[in-house]
Amino acid sequence: MLKQNFAALLLAGAVLAPAGAFGQAVPLGDATEGAELYQYECASCHQIGDGAEHRIGPHLNRIFDRRAGSYEEFHYSEALARQGRDGLYWDLARLDAYIENPRSLVSGTNMAYPGLEDATERADLIAFIRAYSDQPQNIPEASPTAFAPEVRLPPEVLAIEGDAEYGAFLSAECTTCHQRSGDFAGIPGIVGWPQEDFVVAMHAYKKRLRPHEVMQNLAQRLDDEEIAALAAYFESLRD
């Protein structure tokens, strides 16, 4: 019932997204504004609408509730394909995060797009893209998509100077799986990343935006200082 209202209102323009796991209802945005933004920000790589085809990026019809990286005929980065296999689905929260900062959600993505900082603009854009997805009444299992309005980390969190010695201790919990050498042997390497990328990736696991229960579970008990400490330590392992 909620879903149907949502869909019906969506076509009318500005609507409220239902409150979901993130506990906040926010305006989805203005699809007309979004259409214009799409031309500037996305159209050079992604087609959308009737007859849309894959270009530099995959077409974005029916992107909502699709598994990430799931067009077999499109050649995705291994990172996005992996996240898809792990259970990353494009709902409002994930799309918003990906558009805001693609690497926060998928570190190794090859979508060469720097991100869209303005939350209102993202909401407009998503409202536009949403109109090209199946309507929820046609796909009963579609989730009522939760929306995390601010994926961006507060500047004070990004500014924390990591205690690398503490990071060295904490890192021992990671090196059972992630090799100190940075080698990929079934689990991605995490050595030598810029600290900010590391921090946003860990917070994305902590917020459960990124799928993967092992990482969500580990990130959950790390506080901001500890994530910064790990980022500082693993960056220092760069050859």
């Binding site: 799986c177 079934g186 689990i187």
Partner: peptide
């Protein structure tokens, strides 16, 4: 990946 990780560790 884990096996390779833990024995390297």
């Amino acid at each position: 990946g884990w096996y390779n990780g833990i024995v390297a560790d």
